[in-house]
Design a protein around this nucleic acid. Structure first.
Lengths: 202, 202
DNA sequence: GAATTCAGATACAACTGTGTATTAGAGTTC
DNA sequence: GAACTCTAATACACAGTTGTATCTGAATTC
């Protein structure tokens, strides 16, 4: 199994990507502040030299990591929800989608770290807010489309309801991680369902 | 204005309390990991010697800080909600209470830091979960009491609805801090109101 | 009021992390 | 294949953090 000899660019991209993946692991494990550049490069199998020739700073790397994840999540959402569908299908898919995010989203710790970092770093906050608003608007679109199809008026502006959704999911995601014993599948569905079944869609 | 000469115990308690207050400031400002013992004691006007003769570790101090805040918040909640009241009064007061928490709660950053720490430190998590469940049960009581007075069945077990409430408030609190421009008073009320007016209480 | 006790200051030794400057070695160009 | 260029390793100087060990002075005790 001859390993392909890489061009300079391929090699660099590989290093770049490996550092990002390593950072995701290490930051999730130790937290952004406690994750040293040394930790990250060691996890990736490099030394600090590789880091500084690929990124300006730890925050820069983190932003790029979040950006990649944001784009992935966004694409997922669009693939599921963009095709025109029936009222029932869309309702079902939204519920499924969020239950899936709630259960499977691996990177929520990274986003929690990021939010905390954003409170303290204005530049970082600006970048993060852009992602946040993009997501809110995507969700607001879905909500607006849903009510339009049904021909009823939403109980509040869709953008506000989108905030509700995001806040609730994030909060529950945390409980799910720290007190799983108190949050059976059923309890989680009850807690989330308040929005997805009782309010938005009834 | 003669300053009172303190007894040893008074002096120690004063130092202890000042360190806690300083820690609240510094941890909120720099984050738990980045806040060094040196930072905290300097902020309080002491040296590290004072810290190590008052606390076993930074995590220990943090737990005590959170414990104090938890007790305060809890007492507030009870004072407002414990007296038997009319249905309308309780509904109004819950809404007011949460709007107040939402707007005024100064220490939510500390709790956000704590949740992240809890993901990584089992002992810390156990302590924090205890506070979390105590709070959930307090809220669940209020919800149960409300439905009982009204004589209707809650849409889900009160404990689950309490999780919903806590998750939503925390999440919105974050948005309020990082994207205040997108969250007018009205938008916030809409986002929170989904629960307080549409679901729980209608 | 002398002896004692204890809160907190000071000094210290070990470690960890950072960023830059320099170097080695592999890819690229001609 | 010789000169070059760029990625990543290595070396280094420096700053910050930690916990303990020791010391000091004010409160306490007799």
């Amino acid at each position: 199994m001859a390993r392909k000899r890489l061009t300079r660019e391929e090699s660099r991209d590989q290093t770049h990507q490996r550092l990002l993946e390593a950072a995701a692991l290490v930051i999730a494990k130790k937290g952004f502040a406690a994750a040293s550049v040394e930790d990250i490069t060691a996890q990736a199998g490099y030394t600090r030299g590789a880091f500084y020739s690929n990124f300006k700073s730890k925050a820069e790397l983190f932003i790029e990591l979040l950006s990649q994840d944001h784009q992935c999540v966004r694409q997922d959402l669009h693939e599921i929800l963009d095709a025109p569908q029936s009222l029932e299908a869309i309702e079902e898919q939204i519920t499924q989608y969020y239950l899936r995010v709630y259960r499977d989203e691996k990177n929520f710790i990274l986003w929690a770290e990021a939010r905390l970092l954003a409170l303290r770093d204005a530049k970082f906050r600006a970048r993060l807010n852009a992602y946040c608003l993009e997501k809110r608007d995507d969700i607001a679109d879905v909500i607006a489309r849903f009510y339009q199809m049904r021909g009823t008026k939403p109980p509040a502006p869709p953008k506000d309801l989108a905030f509700t959704t995001m806040a609730l999911i994030d909060g529950m995601r945390f409980f799910n991680e720290t007190i799983p014993k108190e949050l059976s599948e059923e309890a989680a569905q009850n807690a989330l369902g308040v929005i997805f079944t009782s309010t938005f869609f009834k």
